[in-house]
Computed example of a mutant assay.
Amino acid sequence: MKTMSLIVPCYNEEPTIEIFYNTVEKVFSDHPDEFKDIHHEYMFINDGSSDGTLAEFRKLNAAHPDIVHYVSFSRNFGKESGLAAGLQHAKGDYIAVMDVDLQDPPELLPKMLTTLESGDYDCVGTMREDRKGEPVIRSFFSRSFYSVINHISKVQIIPNARDYRLMTRQMVDAILAMPEYNRFSKGIFNWVGFRTTYLKFENAPRSAGETHWSFWQLFNYSIEGIVDFSDVPLKIATFIGGLFAFLAVVGIIIVIIRKLMFGNSVGGWASMVTLMMFIGGIQLFCLGIIGNYIGKIYLETKHRPLYIVQEEK
């Protein structure tokens, strides 16, 4: 009998955990034919929650020790660390990544499993048909992010694709072979390759609680993805630096010719100061891009663990 491991990272999700468990269990019980040869297990990840999330995990584990397992971090390490921990601890032949808020519909699991067992694919991902119910400004920046990263990166990321997916053990082992500290799972899932198909679903509200992703956190996450999977920003900085160096040389030549021909100094100190401030801003912008990449290198060379486990069952 094969095993399906469900990886569920959680951060302050106390109200949603029991709802999630009961909903997923109902999907398994309602589809006995699809899951007749499948043993399923849950791998909950507590990412340093400050509410009763860990207590909910303990309660579920006590009631269902054969299928419910959990890993609890010593502090909040972030979503990517939670995903990495789940992949490292999951032992199943098939591994699914899901959000606990039920915005990833468990009803797709039977079809995902059937598609995977056909042997035609190594991964069945999911994507939203639209972003209905999401703030307009967030939808705009999300579309802009996918457009930008797919133009500057060799790794193509499917717009509106979710982390919710079912993968074979072979694909997960390939993902785990990537040891980097700075992780962007949407890019990693696509970078390793393997045959992947996507199922579409309509956007759904959270089952309970509130999202913990602020606009600023999502913006930073998008920057992480761009830096992790493209060196184009460095090339842009190089191009801008070269362009302004060329313009500076042209400016110097114009000033010298004007001095020799007309014998007067160049006027317009205000415009000159403005130009200097503009060029200084461009230089700082380029240094910021370079600094971001250097910072990534710095973190990689430290070889710190992605997370620290305080408790697991």
Results as ranks from 00 to 15, higher is better:
Ser153Ile: 09
Asn292Leu: 14
Gly241Pro: 08
Arg128Tyr: 07
Val148Glu: 00
Asn292Met: 14
Gln88Asp: 02
Ser50Pro: 08
Asn76Ala: 12
Phe285Cys: 13
Gly48Trp: 00
Ser185Cys: 09
Phe215Gly: 12
Lys235Asn: 10
Pro105Phe: 03
Lys259Leu: 15
Gly295Asn: 11
Pro179Gln: 03
Ile289Glu: 01
Glu41Met: 05
Met43Gln: 12
Ile252Leu: 13
Leu284His: 08
Phe246Ile: 08
Leu234Gln: 02
Asn76Thr: 12
Thr3Glu: 10
Tyr298Ile: 13
Val266Cys: 11
Asn292Gln: 14
Glu134Ile: 13
Ser74Cys: 13
Lys91Gly: 07
Phe73Val: 03
Ala204Ile: 07
Ala90Ile: 02
Ser185Ala: 07
Asn61Ala: 15
Ser207Trp: 01
Gly267Ser: 14
Glu117Leu: 10
Tyr298Gly: 06
Ser72His: 02
Gly280Tyr: 08
Leu60Ser: 02
Leu284Tyr: 06
Val250Cys: 08
Asn76Trp: 02
Pro15Ala: 04
Ser265His: 13
Thr115Lys: 14
Pro106Ser: 05
Tyr70Trp: 04
Asp99Tyr: 03
Ile38Asn: 05
Cys286Asp: 00
Lys26Asn: 14
Ser147Phe: 11
Glu56Arg: 04
Ser74Val: 08
Gly241Glu: 02
Lys2Tyr: 05
Glu180Cys: 12
Asn150Tyr: 04
Ala62Tyr: 05
Thr53Cys: 06
Phe194Lys: 07
Ile17Asp: 00
Leu299Cys: 12
Leu116Val: 13
Ile240Asn: 06
Gly48Glu: 04
Thr238Ile: 05
Ile7Met: 03
Phe20Ile: 03
Gly242Cys: 06
Ile17Trp: 01
Ile158Cys: 08
Lys91Asn: 15
Ser29Asn: 12
Lys132Trp: 05
Asp66Val: 03
His31Met: 07
Leu87Met: 15
Thr238Gln: 15
Tyr293Cys: 01
Glu107Ala: 13
Glu80Gly: 01
Tyr146Asp: 03
Val250Lys: 08
Arg131Tyr: 15
Val266Glu: 14
Ile158Tyr: 06
Gly86Val: 03
Ile256Arg: 04
Arg258Ala: 13
Val136Ser: 14
Pro233His: 00
Ala63Phe: 09
Lys296Ile: 10
Asp51Glu: 07
His69Asn: 11
Glu41Lys: 10
Val172Cys: 09
Phe262Cys: 11
Val309Ser: 06
Met1Pro: 13
His212Trp: 06
Thr238Ser: 12
Tyr70Met: 04
Asn22Gln: 15
Leu260Gln: 09
Ser230Leu: 08
Phe215Cys: 11
Pro179Lys: 15
Val273Thr: 13
Tyr298Asp: 13
Ile282Gly: 00
Phe219His: 12
Trp269Arg: 12
Ser81Lys: 01
Met277Val: 14
Cys10Glu: 00
Phe246Tyr: 11
Glu25Val: 12
Glu107Leu: 09
Lys259Cys: 10
Leu247Pro: 02
Tyr181Trp: 05
Ile45Ala: 00
Ser118Tyr: 11
Asp30Gly: 09
Thr114Trp: 04
Thr53Lys: 00
Gly187Lys: 00
